[in-house]
């Protein structure tokens, strides 16, 4: 564990709770992509199967359980409790066009050809693009509530901090995992455009809106 990874994990946790609190307080999931949340749910469920096979630390176990439960609660709020507020007309990204090729890629390109390892690889590849339905939804409607943009910023920050963590680990432990690194860099790049808008608009106190 190093400070960059810890800060990244906290940022990730913060993102998930910002979203939950936004939905709960406003009693609405307007502007939130349910598809992205389902993809994140798949990511956590396929990656954290090792909860049952390997113990790393109390921290690791607790965080995994929180990530899984919080995401399942978010999915429940979007598709059940506050379903009437779910903007499904604008959540039209074809998520299956991501999941199917990624499943194929995970079978072909992995560290080891075993069930758990392929599911882990699938989750790493899937996480890298899971935010795409959300970003697509924002570009389609041309706007995002300020709190939704805080959510996206915290999520992007988490990815950025993980890259710094990998650089740190490479030099201090000679540890690197090229599957995680390649997918992590792709994921971080997806946020770049958003980061620019966030810094130029939201921090200056304006609503985020995109040029048509």
């Amino acid at each position: 564990m190093n400070i960059f990874r810890l800060a990244g994990d906290i940022s990730h946790l913060l993102a998930i709770f910002i979203l939950l609190i936004k939905i709960w307080r406003s009693r609405s999931c307007a502007g939130i992509s349910g598809k992205s949340q389902v993809l994140f749910g798949m990511v956590f469920l396929t990656r954290y199967l090792d909860l049952f096979t390997s113990f790393i630390s109390v921290y690791n176990t607790v965080m995994k359980v929180i990530f899984i439960l919080a995401t399942l609660v978010t999915i429940y709020l979007v598709f059940f409790k506050f379903r009437a507020t779910y903007d499904s007309n604008n959540d039209t990204f074809r998520a299956e066009l991501l999941v199917i090729p990624i499943a194929g890629l995970a079978v072909l390109v992995n560290h080891e050809f075993s069930l758990f390892e392929i599911l882990w690889t699938f989750s790493i590849y899937l996480e890298s693009v899971s935010i795409m339905p959300q970003l697509y939804m924002i570009s389609k409607t041309g706007e995002a509530e300020t709190i939704t943009s805080h959510y996206l910023f915290a999520l992007g920050l988490y990815r950025g901090l993980y890259i710094v963590n990998w650089v740190w680990r490479y030099y201090t432990e000679q540890f690197y995992d090229w599957i995680a690194i390649v997918a992590g860099v792709v994921q971080t790049l997806l946020y770049c455009d958003f980061f620019y808008l966030y810094i130029t608009k939201v921090i200056k106190g304006k609503e985020m809106s995109l040029p048509a």
Binding site: T53, S54, N60, E112, E117, D177
Partner: peptide, 10 residues
């Protein structure tokens, strides 16, 4: 399995 590929990150 996990003895070979170590995934200690979240």
């Amino acid at each position: 399995r996990y003895s070979f590929v170590d995934h200690d990150e979240l």
